[in-house]
């Protein structure tokens, strides 16, 4: 793997390629569930991948950000939790 970098997902290390989106990095490792919905606490993952649906908005480096619109950075800290719920 060229330009391999490492991020942490729920405190576990995850190797990925520099330049890819957080969503792609998670999906490439078969991590499908990103968060739960606030109303029913139903499992949710990335859906539209183009920034519209907000389903992939999770805690990235301490802020809720859309995983599909955020590029991985070495040492990035990703927590699989959304706004106001898990």
């Amino acid at each position: 793997m060229t330009d391999a970098i490492q991020i942490t997902v729920n405190q576990r290390p995850l190797a990925c390629r520099a330049g890819m989106s957080v969503a792609a990095a998670l999906l490439a490792q078969d991590i499908y569930q990103f968060r739960t919905s606030p109303a029913r606490r139903a499992p949710r993952g990335a859906f539209c991948l183009m920034g519209a649906c907000q389903e992939c908005a999770i805690m990235i480096d301490g802020h809720i950000q859309r995983a599909c619109q955020t590029v991985v950075r070495d040492g990035m800290c990703v927590v699989l939790a959304g706004a106001s719920a898990g």
């Binding site: 999906l27 499992p43 949710r44 993952g45 990335a46 859906f47 539209c48 991948l49 183009m50």
Partner: peptide, 15 residues
């Protein structure tokens, strides 16, 4: 359709 693993068709083209 809200289950993780269901994606938009356009989402596939983006990836």
């Amino acid at each position: 359709w809200t289950l993780p693993g269901v994606f938009g068709l356009a989402a596939a083209t983006v990836l």
